[in-house]
Amino acid sequence: MRYDDSPPQPETAPAPGADRRRFARRSALAVAAAVIAPTTLAGWVLVQVGTGAGADDARPPRIAAPAATGTGTPAAPPATASPGADPSTGAPASGAPAPSPGATSPLAGKTVVIDPGHNTGNFDHSREINQQVDIGTARKECDTTGTTTRAGYKEADFTLDVSRRLRTLLEGRGLKVVFTHEADRAWGPCITERARIGNEANADAVVSVHADGVSEGSRGYHVILPAKVKGGAADTAAIVGPSRTLGERIAANFARTTGSGPANYLGGGTGLVVRDDLGGLNLSTRPKVFVECGNMRDSKDAALLTSPQWRQKAAQGIADGIVGFLGG
């Protein structure tokens, strides 16, 4: 409405019918004002609610969807964070379950091969496991018995238990997991077959689970990485780099989750060791590492290795390292 700022004019008699016309114009203006005012007020309220005025300032303001305009197209609902997400970022909150991987997940379609070190049956099949096999750069025993704690807890029992826990965690993230064995055979498999299983699965990562057996006082974990070797069927040139990245990821997560320190007897305190004498690494064409979770012959480490709760932590640390390596 525009107000007339001109000086007041002398009053004159209204023309015939002027009062009726003036009344009609004023009535029309009053009706228009009555329509506009509620609409304007409703729009103001919508903005106040939509911007969360007076609400938690940690949340970003949400732009309210415009009211329907009568075009027949409903307004899109505002986006909401997934359950358990940080409302300020939309990222999963700490401790919240990881989202199930979908078609766009970096873990979708990926395969991990888990190799539980040794086999409890090896103790009864020394002739079979002592047969020599070709690892490309040399010949070695097909397999060994592995070590035990001083109380008799076998490395092979430890590695199978941790591997099964690890499988559950990885499958929970949507990964396909393949085992080299589940103690469902009398002995073995040989180190050559263990490598072949990972290669034929076209694994995105291969992890061999072990525990060491050295003297009392030697403590801590270490991750064994493949050296660059070439000879016969062995050629690790393509996997040295990615295997190191895999090993570094696992070492860091293992230490954080278990609270264990890196081995104090090799690796220079890094928790990483490079070797060229392990057939399981030499013959692998896929990124692969060995994880020595601790020393079974040290009483303090043995107390950890025989604890189901600690073995769950060990599995979690390895799983987190693998998932990080695969981009999950």
Score class of each variant (00 low, 15 high):
309 Q>Y: 00
155 E>V: 03
325 F>P: 01
261 G>E: 13
147 T>N: 04
165 R>G: 05
116 P>F: 06
43 G>V: 11
308 P>W: 08
160 L>K: 11
311 R>D: 07
115 D>K: 02
1 M>H: 14
303 A>L: 01
312 Q>D: 15
88 S>V: 05
139 R>A: 03
305 L>C: 04
300 K>L: 12
15 A>I: 01
60 P>F: 01
75 A>E: 10
47 V>M: 08
97 P>K: 02
151 A>W: 00
260 S>H: 12
183 A>Y: 08
125 H>F: 07
82 S>M: 12
321 G>S: 09
21 R>L: 14
36 I>R: 04
118 H>A: 01
133 V>P: 03
187 W>V: 02
287 P>H: 09
44 W>A: 13
3 Y>N: 11
212 D>L: 01
89 T>Y: 05
263 A>G: 11
162 V>K: 12
259 G>K: 13
135 I>S: 08
307 S>W: 01
326 L>D: 11
202 N>Y: 00
68 A>L: 11
71 T>L: 12
306 T>L: 10
103 A>M: 05
289 V>P: 11
199 N>D: 12
136 G>K: 10
84 G>C: 05
307 S>Y: 00
85 A>V: 02
44 W>C: 07
151 A>F: 00
236 T>N: 02
314 A>H: 02
177 V>H: 04
175 L>K: 13
40 T>E: 02
4 D>V: 09
92 P>C: 13
159 T>C: 06
54 G>L: 02
139 R>V: 02
15 A>L: 13
301 D>V: 05
113 V>R: 13
271 G>Q: 10
38 P>L: 10
321 G>F: 14
295 N>F: 12
141 E>C: 03
12 T>E: 14
182 E>P: 00
101 P>M: 08
80 T>P: 05
245 T>Y: 01
129 I>C: 00
149 T>R: 11
70 G>T: 10
31 V>S: 05
211 A>K: 01
287 P>A: 10
113 V>P: 08
240 V>A: 00
83 P>K: 00
35 V>C: 12
266 L>D: 06
95 G>Y: 13
220 G>E: 03
40 T>I: 09
289 V>I: 15
265 Y>Q: 07
266 L>P: 04
82 S>D: 15
156 A>C: 04
79 A>W: 11
312 Q>F: 07
104 T>A: 12
179 F>H: 09
34 A>L: 15
311 R>C: 08
66 P>N: 00
28 A>M: 08
107 L>Q: 04
8 P>N: 08
121 G>V: 09
269 G>H: 07
39 T>S: 09
73 T>F: 11
75 A>Q: 06
50 G>K: 05
258 T>A: 03
166 L>Y: 09
253 N>D: 14
219 R>T: 15
303 A>E: 14
290 F>G: 00
52 G>F: 08
180 T>I: 11
308 P>T: 08
112 V>K: 12
262 P>K: 03
20 R>E: 15
2 R>P: 07
244 R>I: 04
80 T>A: 13
102 G>V: 09
43 G>D: 04
160 L>V: 09
221 Y>T: 01
149 T>E: 08
53 A>G: 09
231 G>N: 07
166 L>T: 10
75 A>Y: 06
304 L>D: 14
150 R>S: 13
135 I>P: 01
218 S>P: 00
5 D>T: 15
253 N>S: 11
191 I>Y: 05
117 G>M: 01
152 G>W: 14
78 P>W: 00
39 T>W: 12
